[in-house]
Simulated scan of single mutants.
Amino acid sequence: MIPSINYAILTDALNALKSGNFRHCESLGFTLDEMNALNQLSLDELFTVSQAAAPFLAVNVHHDVLRHLLSHARQEYLQLQQINRAIRLGGSIALLNQYYGLTSNETCLRRRLLGVSVPYGRPPEPDEETDAEIWRQWQKCRVGNLQSPNALIAMMIVTEALLPMAEGLSLTTVWKRITLCEKESAKRRASHAR
């Protein structure tokens, strides 16, 4: 056993004992007698026990739990990357709240951390050519459920594709235009179905 692991486990157990968290010590495998003995150790005794080469602790890997944690960490990382991408593309507070549940404070903090500044006032409406191009690009990667994360990813793709030709175009503008066009398209389909 590596001595530093002994030390880490012993200090963790002692911290738990000092705060009255006996269940944590039990979960580590310590008996009540061992907890009492640990609680009475002097600093020198703790150092001696923690530096002992004799293994008094077994480490087990719970493979299913580890796989789940790794998968969850990966999903969290990918979501954070998507949030940062949306912010860099000019995602508004409302957009980030709808798709990721971020509050206005969280969005503002993330913007500052990324060095993204947002111009004051309403963003300019796209001209007719840009508006038509937004719709054409959307048709290439359209997602049926506009509330889904996949729809937002598709909208980011549209925004990135149009940025070279439409300077100042933001993800928020693309989101609003696509949402409006989808509503109008649904109304037309409904009126034709009658």
Score class of each variant (00 low, 15 high):
R142W: 08
L28Y: 02
V49E: 11
N39F: 07
G115H: 00
P164F: 01
T103N: 13
H24Y: 05
S104P: 04
R194V: 14
H68A: 08
V158H: 10
N36W: 09
D33H: 05
I9V: 15
G115K: 13
G101M: 00
L43Y: 06
F56W: 06
N15T: 07
R85A: 06
L163S: 11
N97R: 07
F22A: 13
Q75D: 06
L113V: 11
G20P: 09
A186G: 12
P123V: 07
G20S: 04
K187G: 07
L32K: 02
N145C: 11
A8Q: 09
I157F: 04
L95Y: 02
E76N: 06
L102G: 05
L180G: 12
C141T: 09
E34K: 01
L57W: 11
E125Q: 13
Y120D: 11
S117H: 09
I153A: 15
R112Y: 09
Q147H: 15
E76P: 03
A16I: 06
G144N: 12
Q81K: 15
C181V: 08
W135K: 11
Y100G: 00
H63F: 08
G20L: 00
Y100S: 00
L41Y: 14
S104T: 01
E106I: 15
A13T: 00
S170R: 03
R85K: 09
L96G: 04
G101R: 14
I5N: 09
R177H: 14
A86L: 01
H63L: 15
L38Y: 00
P119W: 03
M35H: 01
V116F: 03
L180A: 15
I157M: 11
A166L: 02
L162T: 03
P119L: 09
L96I: 14
R177E: 09
V158E: 08
L69R: 13
L46T: 10
L38Q: 02
L38A: 00
Q147A: 10
I153Y: 11
D127W: 07
P149K: 08
D64E: 15
V143I: 15
I2H: 06
L57C: 08
M155W: 00
Y7Q: 12
D33W: 12
R136I: 06
E26C: 05
E133G: 05
Q75K: 07
L78R: 14
